[in-house]
């Protein structure tokens, strides 16, 4: 009797998340999948088949764009990690109390404005008549205006800036949980800065590194605004391509197929990343 009521309670507790999953995640995906396996024959006339998926692999432009997006996202993830780790280490280990809170808040301040505003901010800085260009000219380092916008480096800057918080937060959490005495013990036993970093700090922070990398990779891969606004003439991004298929080409069938391919291929990349780093998802998500 009592176990029955507790089970009912459990179901009631789970009901909102279950509903949320069903209504907002599962049902739309089922719908999208059905659209993705429809092949257009003529107006209001569709067949069922996998031609849309085949199109991805047969048209080099599509899979090349995906590969490009993936490589750039991986690069953005690595850069974010390289930049975020020292910041996180500084916040977690070298500051205390108020300074720590302040620094943490400073990392978050950019996220109080919308992504669009942040990206426009970068455009103001990087454009030919922008702040950096004028500053360089004022300092006499360059003779004419320099264009720093509309290239892959600008995309990279934007992606790293947009996602750094999502790397710093899990890293600070895991590094916070690293007992200072472990680091001291490392020094006491004759360790150097590098060997302590390599043998003690990084292995301990691994779950945070991996979860941060997964989040940043997924955010970069799924980013839409940054590559469009900061990118150059060749800067195709896979999400932009999906948008184009849905909105400007009215080709929902191909767009849906692309959506599923993005889901599957990005999961595959994350899976490979976990395998390579020797981590498991449950380990990563459970600990951080």
């Amino acid at each position: 009797m009592s176990s029955d009521t507790s089970r009912l309670g459990l179901y009631l507790l789970l009901a909102p998340i279950f509903l949320w999953l069903t209504v907002l995640i599962i049902l739309p995906h089922v719908g999208l999948f059905i659209v993705s396996i429809s092949e257009k024959v003529g107006p209001r006339d569709y067949d069922t088949g996998f031609a849309n998926y085949a199109a991805f692999f047969t048209e080099p432009l599509y899979w090349r764009t995906f590969a490009r997006t993936t490589i750039m996202s991986v690069l953005a993830t690595v850069l974010t990690l390289i930049l975020g780790f020292p910041i996180a280490y500084y916040i977690a280990k070298l500051t205390k109390g108020r300074a720590k809170t302040t620094l943490f808040l400073m990392c978050m301040i950019p996220f109080w404005v919308s992504e669009l505003v942040r990206t426009f901010g970068w455009m103001i800085l990087l454009r030919e008549t922008g702040v950096f260009s004028n500053l360089l000219q004022y300092l006499g380092l360059v003779t004419g205006p320099v264009e720093m916008l509309y290239n892959d480096a600008a995309i990279m800057v934007g992606l790293v800036y947009t996602s750094i918080l999502f790397m710093v937060v899990p890293l600070v959490t895991t590094l916070d949980s690293l007992d200072d005495s472990l680091i001291e013990a490392g020094y006491d036993l004759g360790g150097t800065n590098t060997s302590i970093m390599r043998e003690i700090v990084i292995p301990h922070a691994m779950p945070g590194i991996v979860s941060g990398c997964i989040v940043v990779f997924m955010l970069s891969l799924g980013n839409y605004l940054t590559p469009i606004l900061l990118g150059g003439k060749d800067s195709l991004w896979f999400t932009g391509m999906i948008y184009t298929q849905f909105i400007t080409r009215f080709n929902w069938e191909l767009g849906s197929a692309f959506g599923f391919l993005l889901l599957a291929l990005s999961s595959l990349v994350v899976f490979l990343g976990l395998k390579v780093s020797g981590q498991s998802l449950s380990n990563t998500m459970g600990r951080s």
Binding site: S181, E184, A185, Y187, D188, T192, I200, P203
Partner: peptide
């Protein structure tokens, strides 16, 4: 002389064994 160059070793209060090794 920094700690890693001193001929002393220390057993920490909570031992500080490295859990990842």
């Amino acid at each position: 002389v920094p700690p890693n160059k001193r001929p002393v070793s220390m057993v920490f209060q909570h031992l500080a064994l490295f859990p990842t090794m």
